[in-house]
Design a protein around this nucleic acid. Structure first.
Lengths: 237, 237
DNA sequence: CGCTGGATTGAGGCCGATCAACTTCAGTGG
DNA sequence: CCACTGAAGTTGATCGGCCTCAATCCAGCG
């Protein structure tokens, strides 16, 4: 029963843990239901989890690692729709459409839990107290990426970095982490070119707001970064 | 009992109707529960439904009319977050945050149903078969506004007009409707200025893709409009 | 070692913003 | 009825931020 340990330890901090814990309770009471986590999988870097337009069957919870979701537009170019990290859930959008609306690809080696949506619904049925929690989780997703509406490139990039540091659970003391995605991916997500992202990084480095070396990044002036994200400050030259 | 008629007739096409119909069934079976629609309200033009940061208590379903949601940014200017029409639900984002994240204001005279979230949760508890439906509805919202990621102003405006015509239930034969919002609001939502929106309308009119006279608009070439939204065509000069 | 894809940096161009003038229209009161 | 007012919309001229295109650099890797 590999499920019994993870739910307490590996899954600490996972937004889906309440479901898994409840499931253990069901089991210990001898209730016969389909398991909500059907299986665990690991993805190698650049491995595809699902393709756009394929039939929706599972939600996926990320144990550790990073993925991006993307479309290929009619004119051929790729459009990044989101980044997902440990504890995040993939597939909510497909509940409505019935098929995945984006493709999902692993940016690093990644471990996931596969959750058949039908089993999940059956499970919710046995535990109506968890209704509130799933609505809470999906509502959270509606609030994401609001900074994409910001006008200037600087604002969007600063807000992106702050969002990223939070979602990667970066230590508030060190404020240092590794970007899991390329400049191209960042730019694509923020509606910028890779060149503009690179230039903005250089600019922020010169202004000693961040330190950046390839994928390694550290915040030197957290407050200014927040001000820039809000449009209350700009970093020039 | 003014609730009994609307659920069948006035509420036709409302995404929340399944809940209201189920409630009637509960009532007819003599089940004692809090009503999911607490009361009906009408808003005059420019009347505020709720303010940003006020405590979340109700979801609101629009019977008829139009609203916009907006923030006031730190630098003082308004930022439109969305438009809502008959059958739409306001307040999903606040399920996560516990307070409304935007302010909501009526663009025209508007009628709404006020749904206390607590009553709604209690009701869901009695009808677990409707869990699936509410997840479906919120998932739908995750899929909205995806065209805001498009690169050119033309693409975003074309996609916006198409989205609008669908959500206003415009007849496929006439393809004519009235814009409920100002150029300023449209531009603000699409990250454009009112001047740019005005120029694009003029341009599309010259190219005989749309006819526009103040707030009245008609699609003359639906297919080209779709092509423009997809980035497969441009309308020049 | 050379190859390859990502990242950086520079030069020039274009799209949409800004600023400004003018028109139209709705509302108000004389 | 018209005069007045203010908000919304249109159109033009100019400016600037970001894109495009291109060259170079660098790290990873067979």
């Amino acid at each position: 029963m590999p499920n019994l340990i993870p739910a307490d330890l590996v899954c600490r901090g996972c937004t889906f843990a309440p479901f898994c814990l409840m499931e253990q309770e069901n089991l210990s009471q001898g209730k016969q239901i389909n398991p909500i986590v059907k299986r665990h999988r690991t993805l190698k870097q650049k491995e595809i989890l699902f393709l756009s337009k394929s039939k929706f069957q599972n939600l996926y919870v990320i144990q550790h690692g990073a993925l991006k979701t993307y479309h290929t537009e009619a004119d051929g170019k790729e459009l990044i729709r989101g980044f997902y990290f440990a504890g995040d859930v993939l597939g909510y959008k497909a509940i409505y459409t019935g098929h995945y609306v984006s493709s999902a690809l692993a940016l690093t080696e990644t471990a996931i839990c596969e959750i058949p949506y039908m089993h999940f619904l059956e499970f919710l049925h046995t535990r109506p107290t968890l209704q509130k929690h799933i609505l809470y989780l999906i509502s959270q997703r509606l609030n994401e990426g609001s900074y994409l509406g910001s006008t200037t490139a600087q604002q969007r990039l600063a807000a992106f970095l702050l969002d990223l540091s939070g979602r990667l659970h970066v230590s508030q003391a060190k404020l240092e982490f590794v970007l899991p995605m390329s400049r191209q991916d960042i730019g694509n997500y923020l509606r910028l070119t890779a060149e503009t992202v690179s230039r903005l990084f250089s600019q922020m480095q010169k202004n000693e707001i961040i330190f950046i070396d390839h994928k390694k990044i550290r915040f030197l002036q957290l407050e200014r970064l927040k001000q820039i994200a809000e449009g209350l400050d700009v970093c020039e030259y």
